[in-house]
Design a protein around this nucleic acid. Structure first.
Lengths: 123, 123
DNA sequence: AGACTTACTATACAAAAGTATATCGTTTAG
DNA sequence: CTAAACGATATACTTTTGTATAGTAAGTCT
């Protein structure tokens, strides 16, 4: 695994290696935006259809949902499958890579909880 | 620790608990934006002064740097200390919480590298 | 035939984020 | 006195991101 932390601790370098920067940018790309993480979370909770998502994600418009789903698909986070036997149904699901993003989400939740706690103690 | 993953695996719930959502939002807040992570990384690399940062972060304008540093300070990520003995020098440094964000950055780099690899294999 | 459902797309607009360029105030150096 | 360095701030602008609202196409239900 990567460990930017180790790099920093060694202090042998004074700039983040290029491959790390690129990897980081990729990750930022798939999680940033108002609806990306909510969509991913909803997919974890088995909301697989356009309409399910539209109803689960309070406030999202079809335009945004469609746009974000497309981007997530392009980035290899989700797969779109069309069942052609009438009624035509479309299902979205997370790819393996898409499922793995949960490691990042967990790290974010962990840090967020810790940070909230330490901010509380400040007051 | 949190583990959204465990929650999902239990499948006992069908919505992300409120505290997790809030923690996640907090984290997103401190990492999103074009310059937040670059600034944090530069601080890890001991660029502590306004001018150092301005030079290290290629393309940043003083306006953006100032704005982002302020936000990071408000969010308890960095501390601004003024040394009043002339010459007046200002130093920025990461708080404990700010340093801990490296766990999130590492998770992001790890996932990003893995994802790049799996996207490569697709082609 | 008309209404309803699913899965979208189109157009226009508003708000947020970021950039460009210039300037400020204090201090120190020549 | 003048100029340069540091740590910013001010104003105007452009780009990106997100919202509002309406409409489309293909099928199903009554």
């Amino acid at each position: 695994m990567s460990s930017f932390r180790e790099l920093i601790e060694q202090a042998a370098v004074n700039q983040c290696p290029r491959q790390f920067t690129l990897a980081l940018k990729d990750t930022m790309n798939v999680v940033s935006g108002k609806w990306k993480l909510p969509i991913i979370a909803a997919l974890f909770y088995q909301k697989n259809r356009f309409k399910d998502l539209l109803e689960s994600l309070e406030g999202v418009t079809p335009r945004m949902l469609s746009k974000e789903l497309k981007e997530l698909e392009i980035n290899g986070m989700i797969e779109r499958t069309v069942n052609n036997h009438p009624p035509v149904l479309v299902a979205y699901k997370l790819t393996e890579s898409g499922k793995n993003i949960i490691t990042v989400i967990d790290a974010m939740i962990d840090w967020g909880l810790l940070h909230r706690k330490s901010e509380m103690e400040m007051i």
